[in-house]
Amino acid sequence: MVENRLFMLILAIIVSIPLNASAVEPSEILQNPQLELRARNLSQNIRCLVCQNQSIDDSNASLARDLRKIVREQLVSGASDSEIYEFLIARYGDFILLRPPVKATTYILWYGPLFIFFAGLSLSVLFLIRRKRVLPEEPLSPKEQEELSSLISGKEEG
């Protein structure tokens, strides 16, 4: 679980960066700029189901527009972000989240890269140690190296 905590720490430092802009219509925009900002952030994490690889914030599809409206209505009526996510998951399942929840079925997804990093690190260390055993060659002193390189360049010319 140390790995887990480390990972969460990294996540905390690098908050997720939303890159996409939107298809939001002027009429949809909320008066309260703070609520509107929350609406935009939520929308970027919610998948447009019809158009597949877009968030509802990016999509012109009519279902995406309806979902954007629902998100805003619920924000205005005081719902929390997680309540809005719960509302959508109840109807459409985890699929609607562009950021999959961390749970048993997504451990490989979330922690796989970290596992690969540590596996790769241990493998590299193992190989380095083994090479040392197999090739117990003393490193050259700087003087020897100089001699050697002059030897090589001599051969190259010759």
């Binding site: 690098i14 890159l19 562009l98 950021r99 999959p100 890269p113």
Partner: peptide, 28 residues
Amino acid sequence: LYPLFLDATTGQKVSVGPPFFNATFVPV
């Protein structure tokens, strides 16, 4: 490829979108 893997293994659908990649790729 995780959506493919999860669907074939458990039949569940999952979306892996930009928020996931921003959270995992950037730290690497």
